[in-house]
Design a protein around this nucleic acid. Structure first.
Lengths: 109, 109
DNA sequence: CCGTATCCTTTTCGATACTG
DNA sequence: CAGTATCGAAAAGGATACGG
């Protein structure tokens, strides 16, 4: 049994999937791998996600310490940037492997 | 846009997650990495999954061509073995990476 | 031994309208 | 610009009983 942020997982793979699993989280991380993006830039990169869902998933990723959110309040319009934390950056090789296998699967079926 | 087995995915990571995503599929694959297992052996390895869910997820994995199911009908009691297909074996490095990152995350928080 | 059937709860995701 | 509120649908998963 493995613990992370108060949640328990029966397997080390479950723990990883608890953090990056679901329909959108790997997609978000995939786009943040290259660098910082604003909320609307993420929406543009992932047009099929709704505002609500994007917002929720960003919050989940932030709660797990994988991404960080920086707000620039100096003057409207509001500017919010999302980027990987140092901890989140340790996921980059994994996200790349996930993306690569996806490409491979498309080509080989 | 990427296609696999009739389903469409907006990103190559989504495709991978469509196949190995969810609460249980990586756990099942993790245990099948080492070799063939019978249904009840899988239940023993993953005590927290219910029969119904295990059954459904095995079917999903089989449909996507990742695992194969072999039935020995010669004489009761029934014997059913699950193992990775050749295609499924291409997932092994990825499953290992997922497991390794889970271990890493536990240790570093 | 290896599941399926039934019913139910929880989680996730989507559509749309609206706000500081 | 960057979200939240509300409502609802769908998918995933769980509990338990039963069947070939």
């Amino acid at each position: 049994m493995h613990k992370f942020k108060g949640k328990e997982y029966p397997c080390c793979t479950s723990l990883t999937m608890g953090i990056i699993g679901g329909k959108w989280k790997t997609v978000i991380l995939y786009h943040l791998m290259e660098g910082t993006l604003r909320y609307n830039e993420l929406r543009k990169e992932i047009p099929s996600v709704t505002e609500r869902t994007l917002s929720l998933q960003l919050k989940n990723l932030e709660t797990d310490g994988v991404i960080k959110r920086k707000v620039y309040t100096s003057k409207p319009p509001l500017k919010v940037e999302y980027s990987l934390t140092e901890f989140g950056k340790t996921l980059i090789p994994l996200i790349k492997s996930i993306a690569d296998w996806g490409d491979y699967a498309v080509k080989n079926h």
